[in-house]
């Protein structure tokens, strides 16, 4: 389909021949918020690492913006990387740089904006994520929630077409989690960024997503796909209903 920004086809992924995801296929539509969910150890992070090209699959293809990143040339891959931003689970801010410098780094590298203009842009980006006046703080001087937000500002620095977010609200208080969810929605609606989120925070899933896929450790693949509100009550699979209703296994 023309509207698909990411297509995963027959992906087999794993490490050292230990298959974690067996033959999965799905598409992500341009401009949507798409959530990958599942219990711990089901391969969510593995899938994310493959989608952003950090790991190579055993077989199958991952097509981002019509480029198969499993088979393309290095230069094509580099071009594709400029279209994506990633918020890592631990934020991955550079400890030797201030928050402002962290956000400015990709802008300085990949845009032709003059230094004083970049300073203004960094201020705007940090205001967007609620970190006004924190430009000169080092990552070690701010809290975990602030680091997440700074990481998000850095992922959004070049307004990429797709942003991958690994557990964006894990370990944050409910108010900040809700604020981050709101920010994700806002950026998705106003700027049109496609968001691919890996999470198992139910509240965020219901707030953000129209479409999710759920992975399962035993099946090593997708056990449910669709609207989380529908899956919560009407999924055929009792485990999926349990997951969405936060019930313990019988």
């Amino acid at each position: 389909m023309e509207n698909n920004i990411i297509c995963i086809k027959n992906l087999i992924a794993g490490y050292d021949n230990d298959v974690i995801l067996n033959n999965i296929s799905f598409d992500i539509i341009k401009g949507e918020i798409f959530i990958v969910l599942g219990t711990s150890g089901c391969g969510k992070s593995t899938l994310l690492r493959h989608m952003i090209g950090l790991d190579k699959p055993i077989s199958g293809s991952i097509i981002i913006n019509d480029v198969d990143i499993t088979a393309c040339s290095d230069s094509e891959f580099q071009k594709t990387l400029k279209k994506i931003g990633v918020l890592f689970q631990g934020s991955a801010l550079f400890g030797s740089m201030t928050v402002g410098e962290n956000v400015a780094l990709p802008i300085m590298e990949y845009s032709n904006l003059p230094k004083n203009v970049i300073d203004d842009l960094v201020k705007m980006k940090l205001y967007m994520v609620g970190l006004e006046n924190y430009e000169n703080h080092y990552p070690s001087e701010i809290s975990g929630g602030m680091k997440k937000r700074a990481g998000l500002a850095r992922a959004l620095a070049l307004n990429p077409e797709i942003v991958f977010l690994d557990e964006p609200s894990a370990g944050l208080d409910p108010v900040i989690s809700a604020e981050i969810d709101e920010l994700i929605l806002y950026i998705n609606q106003r700027i049109g960024t496609t968001m691919v989120i890996v999470t198992h925070e139910l509240q965020s899933i219901f707030t953000l997503a129209k479409r999710v896929i759920m992975l399962d450790k035993r099946k090593k693949g997708i056990i449910a796909e669709g609207d989380p509100k529908f899956l919560k009550d009407k999924s055929d699979n009792p485990f999926v209903r349990q997951f969405f209703n936060r019930e313990a296994r019988a």
């Binding site: 203004d120 201020k123 205001y127 967007m128 006046n133 430009e135 000169n136 806002y186």
Partner: peptide, 22 residues
């Protein structure tokens, strides 16, 4: 939409001055 974007970047209140250095 433009108004919203201007609001989320604090367009009207942002100041053109160097950030407070330590």
């Amino acid at each position: 939409n433009i108004n919203d974007v201007l609001n989320i970047v604090n367009f009207n209140k942002i100041e053109k001055k160097p950030s407070l250095k330590k």
